[in-house]
Amino acid sequence: MNLNPFILIVDDDAMVRDIIMEYLQTFGYKNITLLKDGASAVRYLQNPNNRVDLVISDWEMPELDGLGLLQAVRRNPLRKDVKFLMITSQRSQERTKITRAAHWKVDAYIVKPFRGGVLKEKVDALLGNEDVFGKQTG
């Protein structure tokens, strides 16, 4: 049970970042950080003062992509147990990607476009909050 979780959203598209943040706020989450690429996310995670319980990351990003970020998280002894939710837009390659991400222990997976309900279900499950915020958003 995590009553006050810290969530990091990583996406190169500002529009998508904002939507995910708004959704999470609607679900009742308050501690949200937005970053626009994998490299800055790795830097953010290297600082032990930054608390992160869940990373929500896009797959397709310049320089360091979502898989690269996932690998960096799992290799970091401080962060290896951080929950990781991957988002991708490429339905056709979904299966290959799930397999590759699963190898690096991705915790959950969403394909764009998605609706709030799906996002809520995954995020709540990952943070062990199935019942905590359920009633607030309906």
């Binding site: 598209d13 529009m15 998508v16 939507i19 708004e22 959704y23 609607t26 397709e60 837009s89 490429q90 339905r91 056709s92 764009k112 476009p113 998605f114 609706r115 709030g116």
Partner: peptide, 21 residues
Amino acid sequence: ARGMGHEFGNILVQIIGRADL
């Protein structure tokens, strides 16, 4: 088309997300 798929994905997140919210 691969690049476009990504762009459309993001645009649809906006459309569906905004309406949903």
